[in-house]
Design a protein around this nucleic acid. Sequence first.
DNA 1: GCCAACGTTGGC
DNA 2: GCCAACGTTGGC
Length: 135
Amino acid sequence: MKYWLIKTEPDTYSWNDLVKLGRDHWDGIRNYAARNAMKEMKEGDLALFYHSGNEKAIVGIAKCVQEYYQDPTTDDDKWVVVDFIPEQSFNKKIFLSDVKNTEGLSEMVLVKNSRLSVQSVRADEFELIIKMSHE
DNA sequence: GCCAACGTTGGC
DNA sequence: GCCAACGTTGGC
């Protein structure tokens, strides 16, 4: 089982949108690195859900419930989507500043390459963030 | 609103 | 195949 982080502008699509829908596909990815990460995702994998823009915080965990398939928003078969359901809303959001100030999280792709919209997360990083969200 | 970082495009 | 130019993203 692998861990991931998916990123979105909350004005465009937010955690609450996924919660309301109950299940949704992650569409519109037009970046090879992000797409390749999605192709590696398996059913049951967990993804940190990050809001960029004004908020800049990890707000919850989504679970992958369907491996990749053709992106329905384009005919170009280069692009794919996966399906997510909301797994858990964080009681305490983990802000980007928290991530940057936490030893053990400073190597995260979120810090190193803030533009990558789907990225892998190490198990130890994932577990630490979960722990912090419970504090 | 600015700008750095990154990815993509297109001319050569 | 290289690289300059450009567009986009996202933090500050």
